[in-house]
Amino acid sequence: MRTLRRMGGWVALVLWAIFALPGAAGAVGAEDVKVERREFPVRLSDGQGYSVVGYLYYQGSLKNRPVQILSHGITYNHGYWDLPEIKGQEYSYARYMARQKYAVLALDLPGAGESERLNGDVLNLAESASALHQVAQQLRATAEKDTFETLYYVGHSNGALISTYAQALYGDAQAVVMTGWLNTAHEVPVKPELLLGFLQQGPYIRIPGELRAPLFYNPTNSDPAVIAYDNEVADTVTRGQFLDLLTVLAVPELIPTRAISVPVMVQLGENDLLASAAYARNEAKAYPNSPRVSVDTLVKTGHVFNGHFSRDEGWTRIDAWLRSLPR
């Protein structure tokens, strides 16, 4: 990975050439999914208005489509849910679910992607959860009749944490799906001094690729080209959000899981170093007021679920679980 980083400009050019070839990102089956860029005005605790950008994926009509609102983890933006085709393999969760007749709204959370970048020390977990809630409200308010009445939160990693807080505080969704995240106590194999060192970077933090790759991927179940692409397009994370993340990892009792009263699905990776499936039994007990809790394990899967060869299996299980819920 160090070699790739030293050759950063050259790697970016090669990757661009790969994905620009005929049959890449717009390949077979991708053209039937409509994609709309939408902006949502939100007002945060400083009293100021900000714009949150989301990409809406759907096939055919939006009528009678349950909607999934997707929240990405740190170092990502909405692109986590719409990874490009690489070596003839599709990695887009958003397009897959659109073909299963969902409407899928993949967000750039505040401070990431195309959404407005505000003070990175102010933008924390509470602000992100508030923004997610406001987007959910607006999506329902502007929907056509019989559209978006059924709403699901789907979050990955820190995005699952944000979804947890948003649902606990505001209750907008009929179900919550969490991938690559544990709301209960678990170990993280990263030295505390390294994590604290990132806080010195400033209000916006960048995690280096040589740390991301071994923490995020199981190399025996992923393509090196996907890992290289992932590191090239990695986003930043706000210091306020990162500090809150470290806080709840140390004291998970602060996470309001008891306030969640809708069905919950947790999907964990067998080889996820940050949220291991070894803690599945504890996680199932974290939602005493949920009418249904399902904890699912993906074998040979690391942290970045959508970037592994096992991604289709995970997507299929999420779809099946959502379809099993009453609407």
Rank of each mutant, 00 (worst) to 15 (best):
M1L: 15
R5Y: 13
G8T: 12
W10N: 07
A12V: 13
F19S: 14
F19H: 13
G23K: 01
G26P: 13
V28K: 05
E31N: 12
V33L: 13
E36D: 14
E39R: 10
P41M: 05
L44I: 06
S45K: 04
G47Q: 15
V52P: 07
G54M: 03
G54S: 00
Y57G: 13
L62A: 05
R65S: 11
Q68W: 00
H72V: 04
H78V: 06
H78S: 15
D82W: 09
P84D: 12
P84Y: 05
E85V: 10
I86R: 06
K87E: 14
E90F: 04
E90Q: 12
Y91L: 14
S92H: 10
S92Y: 08
M97R: 13
K101M: 14
V104S: 07
D108I: 02
D108T: 02
P110W: 07
G113C: 04
E114Y: 04
E114T: 02
E116L: 00
R117F: 10
V122Y: 14
L123H: 07
N124A: 09
N124F: 01
L125T: 10
E127C: 00
A131L: 03
L132S: 07
V135G: 11
L139W: 09
T142W: 03
E144I: 11
E149L: 06
G155N: 06
S163F: 01
S163N: 12
A166T: 04
G171I: 08
D172P: 00
A173R: 01
A173N: 01
A175N: 04
A175P: 03
V177W: 02
T179E: 14
T179H: 09
G180E: 15
W181H: 11
E193A: 02
L194Q: 13
L195S: 01
G197T: 00
F198W: 13
Q201L: 00
P208M: 14
G209W: 05
N218G: 09
N218A: 15
T220C: 06
N221V: 07
I227T: 15
A228K: 12
Y229N: 06
D230K: 04
D230Y: 03
D230M: 08
A234W: 03
D235A: 03
T236L: 09
T236I: 13
Q241W: 12
D244W: 04
T247Q: 11
T247L: 12
V251I: 12
V251F: 12
I255F: 01
I260G: 10
V262L: 01
M265N: 02
L268T: 07
E270T: 11
S276T: 09
A284P: 00
A286T: 05
N289L: 06
S290H: 13
S294D: 15
V295H: 04
T297Y: 05
V299C: 06
T301F: 06
T301I: 06
N306S: 14
H308F: 08
F309E: 14
R311C: 08
E313V: 09
T316R: 15
L322C: 07
S324P: 03
L325F: 03
P326T: 12
R327C: 09
